[in-house]
Amino acid sequence: MIEPTILSRPTYGTLEPRPGRAHLLIADDAGSAAIVDLFARAPADFHESATILSVTKDLSGDEAAALHRLSPATLTACPDMPAMLNTLAGLLAEAGMGVQIYLAGTEPLIGQAMRVVIEAGIDHSAIATEHRGSLARRVQCVHCKGFMDEVTTQPVTCAHCGLSLFVRDHYSRRLAAFQGVCINAEDQSEIVPAEEVFR
């Protein structure tokens, strides 16, 4: 469970079925179990109006199979995040009024999908989220503006400019990223050892 820290740091809930004519569910491998749990609590005909979009490391893996067993009206699996986000934008362009959005999985998945959904003009009240899986963070280096996915250490070395970055809790929904700020800018001879903290 992600605890609230500062007010820009997002927190997440538990997916519950909502009334609506159409349901768009987005998950990564970690989030697929949350979709399965949601279906278990949903009305029997929920699957008939459900579209599931997943990003998975293994298109023929257990998580993909579990989503397939839910028999959604549409099931699309993508092999990486950019492909999923493109597909999501396409689905949203076709979506009707009142579509309910469910995002489940790691924070990079929720954050990046959320950005596409908001840009499509969906009201935030129609979006539900549930965090599952690792606490790995997507981080933007405030100095070179490069992004890193799946950051697990504090501090982290910027993959682009090489500075040692303190990963703040300060989070931008527009960038779907936490802010990384040089941890030893005042005295670069101070080396702060990295610890694995976002697991």
Binding site: I6, S8, R9, Q140, V142, D169, S172, R173, R174, Q179
Partner: peptide, 22 residues
């Protein structure tokens, strides 16, 4: 503080890192 990072945030979000005041 970074406009590029904070643009689009609401009042409470862009002030989130300020200690004590909240």
């Amino acid at each position: 503080w970074s406009l590029d990072f904070d643009i689009g945030m609401n009042f409470f979000e862009w002030h989130a890192p300020v200690p004590l005041a909240h």
